[in-house]
C-alpha cells in the first residue's frame, strides 16, 4: 500500500496562490466567514524587518495528513468520522460527522476561530449549523423579480451543473459539504484513486509541489527528501519550518527554505 505525502519546494514557490484557487475550484470550498477559512490550501505570509532590509516569505499550508493524527484520536464517533486510509491519507467521513469540532481543537495546525485567535490559517474548517453551504448552488429565486433567473435555475433548466461547481463522487465525502460538519483537505483522494494528482499539484505553475508515495524510495517526493534536508511546518515549540516536529508525524514536507533551518 502506498503512503502518500507531499513535498513543497519553497525556493520554487513564489506564493502566487494558484494552488489555493485550484483547490477552491476543485473542492467547491466556501469563502472565509465566521472565523473559518475554508481554505484547504492556504498560505502563511510573513514580512520581517524594516524597509529596505525586508524579507517576505510565503508558505503554502495544507492538511499534513499526519501519521499519528491528533484529529483522528480526538474524534468521538465510532467508527471514526475522521479516519486514516491505508494509503496514509486522513479522510473525513461526512455521514458520521456530528459537528462537535473536537478534531479542530486537537489539530496543532487548526484554530476554532481564526479571527479571535488571530491565527493566520486553519487546516480544518467548520460549516456553521445555521447556514446552508453554498446556497447559490441551490437558490432558484429570481435575481431581479420577473426578469432574471439565478445561476442555479438556468443550470437546472439546461440540465447542467451550477456555475463554479465541480461534481465528483467519493465514498466518504461529497463535492459540497453539509452544514454542521467540519471539512479539510483530502489530498484530492477522488482524483488520486483515478490515477490523477491532487489538483493543487497539477495547477502549480512553478512545479513547487510534488506528490507521491513516500514509502517508495524511487518516487519523486522520496528522491527530493533524500536530496534535500526537509522540515515540517511546525516544531515542538510551535516555530515554523524548524527541525523537531510536534509529534504527529506530518506527511507534508518543506524543502529548500531561503532561511537556514
Amino acid at each position: 500500500m502506498p503512503k502518500y505525502g507531499m513535498v513543497i519546494d519553497l525556493q520554487k514557490c513564489v506564493g502566487c496562490g494558484a494552488c489555493a484557487l485550484a483547490c477552491k475550484t476543485e473542492n467547491n470550498t466556501q469563502d472565509r466567514a465566521k472565523g473559518q477559512t475554508f481554505n484547504w490550501a492556504d498560505f502563511i505570509y510573513k514580512a520581517e524587518g524594516k524597509f529596505p532590509n525586508m524579507k517576505f516569505t510565503a508558505m503554502p499550508v495544507l492538511c499534513n495528513h499526519c501519521s499519528d493524527a491528533a484529529c483522528v484520536k480526538a474524534c468521538p464517533v465510532t467508527p471514526k468520522a475522521m479516519h486514516k486510509h491505508e494509503n496514509g491519507m486522513t479522510i473525513h467521513n461526512m455521514e458520521r460527522c456530528i459537528g462537535c469540532r473536537q478534531c479542530q481543537r486537537a489539530c496543532p495546525y487548526s484554530s476554532e476561530d481564526v479571527d479571535k485567535s488571530k491565527a493566520a490559517y486553519s487546516v480544518i474548517s467548520f460549516n456553521d449549523f445555521s447556514d446552508e453551504v453554498h446556497p447559490f448552488y441551490k437558490d432558484k429565486t429570481e435575481v431581479v423579480a420577473g426578469c432574471t433567473a439565478s445561476g442555479a435555475e438556468i443550470s437546472h433548466k439546461a440540465g447542467d451543473i451550477p456555475p463554479h461547481r465541480t461534481m465528483y463522487k467519493h465514498s466518504d465525502y461529497a463535492s459540497v459539504r453539509e452544514k454542521g460538519k467540519v471539512e479539510k483537505c483530502m489530498f484530492c483522494e477522488h482524483r488520486v484513486l483515478n490515477g490523477e494528482l491532487p489538483y493543487c499539484v497539477v495547477s502549480c505553475p512553478a512545479k513547487a509541489r510534488t506528490f507521491g508515495d513516500l514509502s517508495d524510495p524511487n518516487s519523486e517526493p522520496s528522491k527530493l527528501l533524500k536530496k534535500h534536508k526537509a522540515v515540517q511546518l511546525k516544531n515542538n515549540k510551535g516555530e515554523l519550518l524548524k527541525p523537531g516536529e510536534k509529534g504527529t508525524r506530518p506527511n507534508v514536507y518543506y524543502i529548500r527554505s531561503f532561511k537556514k533551518a
Binding site: P76, I98, G99, C100, R101, Q102, E112, F129, S130, G180
Partner: peptide, 23 residues
C-alpha cells in the same frame, strides 16, 4: 458557547438560535 453539544445531541433538543447579541 462552543456549541459542541448541539452536534452531539442525537434527538435535536439543542439548537443554536441567532439572537441580537449573537448566537
Amino acid at each position: 458557547n462552543c456549541f459542541a453539544c448541539v452536534g452531539m445531541c442525537p434527538t435535536g433538543g439543542l439548537k443554536i438560535s441567532a439572537k441580537e447579541a449573537g448566537p
